[in-house]
Structure formats: C-alpha cells, structure tokens
C-alpha cells in the first residue's frame, strides 16, 4: 500500500477521468446504435446494416460526419451564448459521471484504485445540483438561437425539468432517510448492511423515480422540449454538426447518470443480487463493475423500450401530472417513510 496524497487525489482520478473522456463518447455512439437497433426490432425493421458487419461501424461514421460538418450559427443569434450552451450540457453530463460508484475498489501496481472518481460525503446532493444545471444549457441554447421553435422548446424544458426535479428530490429524500447518508458509496454500504436493496423497501419511490427520471432526461413520452413532430427539434433546432452532437452526448450522459443514480439508490449499485444470501456467493467472482453495467444497461434499454411504445404527452398534461400527482405522492411517500423509521426505531430500539 503506497498510496500518497498525490496518487489519491491527482494521479488516479486523472487517469480515470481521461479514461471516461476517451471511452464515453464512443460508448454513447454505441448506445445510439443499440437504440436504433432495438427500436428497429420493435418496429419490425433491421436498423443500421450498411457500415460494417450489422452496421457496427455506424456510430463511428456518424461521429466523423458530425465532426466534419460546418459549424453554423444563425445570423441573428447571440453567438457566444449559442456556442457555449451545448458545452455546458456536455460538461454537466460528464461531471455527473464522476459521482457514480461503478464498482468496488481494487489494487493495481500497489495503489488502491476506487471506481468512483469522487466520493464526496454529499454525493447525492452534489449530483442533483449538477444535473439541475442542465436546464441552463437548454434555456440558453433555445434563447440564443433567436428562433421561435427553439424558444418554445427552451420554455418547455425550463418548466418541465424544474417541476419534475421537485418530485425527484422528494423521492430521493425518502431513500436518504433509510440510508442515513448522502454519500453514494455510503448508500450502497447501507443496503449491504440492511441486507436488501431499497427497491423492496421503497417500491413507490422506485416507480416515481423512474418516471421522474424519464421526464428529467427529456426522453419519450416526456420529450416535450425537443418534440420533433411539433417543434421540429425544439431547443436544438438551429444547431448542426458537432455542437448538435454535444447536445446528444449530454442527453445520453444524463441517461447514464440518472440510471446510475437509480441503480445506486434502489438496486444496490455494483453489488450482486441478494448480497446477504450466502448461497449465491459463487457469483462473487464477477466484478462489481459488471453488475453495475448490467443494471445500468437494463435501464438504458428501458428508456428505448418506452420510446418504442408510447405516444408523447402534451405540455399541460405533463405539468398537471407533475404537480398534481407526482409531488403529492412523493411527499406522502417521504412522510410515510419517516413515520415508519420512527416507529421501527421506537419499537425495536
């Protein structure tokens, strides 16, 4: 064990950050590929088949195409804001990834490596704060385009994300009460000690979180800010080339981060199923990272599945659902959880 201050806080995180920056854009490319394939299979099509075997090189071709496109800003746009808006979203998406505990730590060349890049003791809070900044990107991008469809998309995104964030936060609070910590890895440890995933204790919260998560990441059936059949492409109508791809990267990063948060809060993070059942301990040889990827992958699939099945909500119905159903139910869930904890504590000491 030769960890030093330098290795713990500078070198290892830097290597991990570089790894994420290098791998993640490619990964997003392949998430898009999977999305196109799965949607195609739902719709009795084949999906991308031309570039490479089974279209496997399609994401790379797409990325090259986007990078070589002209970087256009509309004549009357606020060029500075127009150009930084997609960067904000991208940075937020990637920052969010840093908080996810992706697996148990391991030892490499005598150094302890933790698979969550930053494990701050207020991780959940920090993550929520970071993720809610993404509204700024959409609003700024939509506003700076100086065009009507992006403006409408931006207004929708502001209203939608703010109202669903309230429900999301109340839902998470209930879980935090159970765990008694705000640290992401602390929540996983709490689930290990409790001997069960929080999905079994918080089923209502789990469902609320999933739906709020879809609304928060602007995916169908809640993809109103981009609503392609109404607002052309919503807030990024005027974007093209790699700035457009930044919005895409940011959106998919948000999907991964939210799925990761969901997995951490309700499904035991990187732990194997039923971590306290000795019978299943033969599964221990599988690294935690694999479980994490499997669980997050399932929810990415879930996002795609929804997209292939549901029509889109209307703006007023979405807001009605958010304020009249989700917020009251999530507050009730929080109170019941708090009450249950008090009762359990006083009865069983």
């Amino acid at each position: 064990m030769n960890n030093t201050w330098l290795s713990d806080y500078v070198i290892i995180p830097l290597i991990l950050i570089l790894a994420i920056l290098a791998i993640f854009p490619l990964l997003v490319g392949y998430i898009v590929y999977v999305e196109r394939k799965v949607l195609a299979f739902i719709q009795s099509r084949l999906g991308p088949m031309r570039v490479g075997p089974y279209g496997l090189l399609q994401p790379i071709a797409d990325a090259l195409k986007l990078l070589t496109k002209e970087d256009i800003a509309p004549r009357n746009a606020d060029v500075f804001v127009f150009k930084i808006a997609p960067i904000i979203l991208l940075v937020i998406g990637f920052t969010g990834l840093a908080f996810l505990p992706m697996g148990e730590g391991f030892e490499l060349f005598g150094y302890d490596v933790s698979l969550s890049i930053v494990d701050v003791n207020v991780g959940v809070l920090f993550l929520l704060a970071i993720m809610s900044l993404s509204t700024y990107s959409l609003v700024l991008g939509g506003w700076a385009s100086n065009s009507k469809y992006p403006l409408l998309g931006a207004l929708r995104s502001a209203a939608q994300m703010v109202s669903y964030e309230v429900a999301l936060t109340f839902t998470i609070l209930a879980t935090l009460l159970l765990a008694g910590t705000l640290s992401m890895s602390g929540i996983i440890d709490a689930q290990r000690e409790a001997g069960l995933w929080y999905i079994f204790v918080q089923p209502v919260g789990f469902v609320l979180f999933i739906i709020a998560m879809v609304a928060e990441t602007n995916r169908l059936p809640f993809d109103l800010p981009e609503a392609d059949t109404e607002l052309v492409a919503g807030y990024f109508t005027e974007y093209s080339g790699f700035r457009w791809s930044f919005f895409m990267l940011g959106e998919y990063a948000a999907m991964v981060v939210m799925s990761g948060l969901l997995v951490t809060l309700y499904l035991g993070g990187w732990m194997r199923p039923f971590p306290n059942v000795e019978l299943l301990s033969f599964l221990d040889f599988i690294p935690g990272f694999t479980w994490f990827v499997l669980k997050v992958g399932f929810f990415i699939y879930f996002f795609i599945w929804l997209r292939g099945t549901y029509p889109r909500y209307r703006y007023d119905q979405l807001m009605g659902l958010g304020w009249k159903v989700f917020i009251p139910v999530s507050i009730a869930n929080l109170f019941i959880t708090a009450l249950a904890i008090i009762v359990m504590d006083s009865v069983f000491g």
Binding site: S44, D223, A227, G308, P311
Partner: peptide, 16 residues
Amino acid sequence: HAMDIGAQTMLMWTIR
C-alpha cells in the same frame, strides 16, 4: 397520425 403524437412504432407497423 400516431407518429405525430409521438408513437413512432405505429408508422412502421402500418407501412408493413
């Protein structure tokens, strides 16, 4: 019509 409302799978099925 279904795709305008957001259900894109419908279009592929009906075109089939």
